[in-house]
Design a protein around this nucleic acid. Structure first.
Lengths: 126, 126
DNA sequence: CTCGTTAATGCAACCGAGTTGCAAATATAG
DNA sequence: CTATATTTGCAACTCGGTTGCATTAACGAG
């Protein structure tokens, strides 16, 4: 469906992603914007921003939804496949700027893939 | 904690995995064994079987938990890293017997990784 | 085989992420 | 400024998974 009107909720959400270079979970956004936006609205706006290619989403290791800014995606083409990294100590999640080659698989048509790498981030590995 | 006593529930669950070469979701197991085992028990037995290295678990694209037989894992060492494939048409999920190389990442310690490939399986691609 | 200990089970209630229906509020074209 | 269609908030709901607790069953000792 996508964004049609410019509203306060959209501004507030986009602002969170401006301030933050990492990915942000939906749950965390709901906490941060608790007094300002209803959680239903947050889920709906995130959906639309994803439709519009502004954000992309993926699941963390516990199955909760995370969002991060897209680079070079459009409404129709989400070309931006990359792995995500989740720190097992601090929980931080971010996009990895590396390419991982997914092999062809006999007799199957590969359409998408999601790679979640877990470990310790720079701060926590020290 | 692991399996200590041999019970009917364990037999029933293991039997499902004998009959089936694909992965099975917890939800599906609950449906299949509805009249025979309580869902709480199913979750608990699956946990233990995973502890013992008999099964391994991972999340499907919608965040639901799947289980499949382990090959060559023990209680202490889950050495069996491999990607999983989920068919977007029929929903079937299985383990892929291929190795995908996860690159080193500067300043981070990589411990695990989960790769979920989505597409069409042999039956559905035709 | 019987008994006692302890693990396993069933049940009901709960939790938390995400969704839905609907009425009220608000953005925007005209 | 007004009309209209989109957004929002709220409350209630869905559903996968978990927890507490009382009951049942596995199994080793005798």
């Amino acid at each position: 469906m996508g964004i049609i009107r410019k509203t306060v909720s959209i501004d507030l959400l986009l602002n969170e992603f401006e301030q933050e270079s990492n990915a942000i979970s939906a749950v965390d956004l709901i906490k941060r914007l608790d007094k300002q936006i209803n959680k239903t609205t947050i889920y709906r706006v995130l959906d639309k921003l994803e439709d519009d290619g502004v954000l992309h989403s993926f699941l963390g290791f516990d199955g909760v939804k995370w969002y991060a800014k897209c680079k070079g995606c459009t409404k129709s083409v989400h070309k931006d496949f990359h792995p995500h990294f989740q720190c097992l100590s601090c929980g931080t999640v971010d996009c990895l700027n590396i390419h991982v080659n997914i092999p062809e698989i006999p007799n199957r048509e590969v359409l998408f893939s999601q790679l979640l790498i877990q470990g310790k981030c720079e701060a926590c590995a020290a």
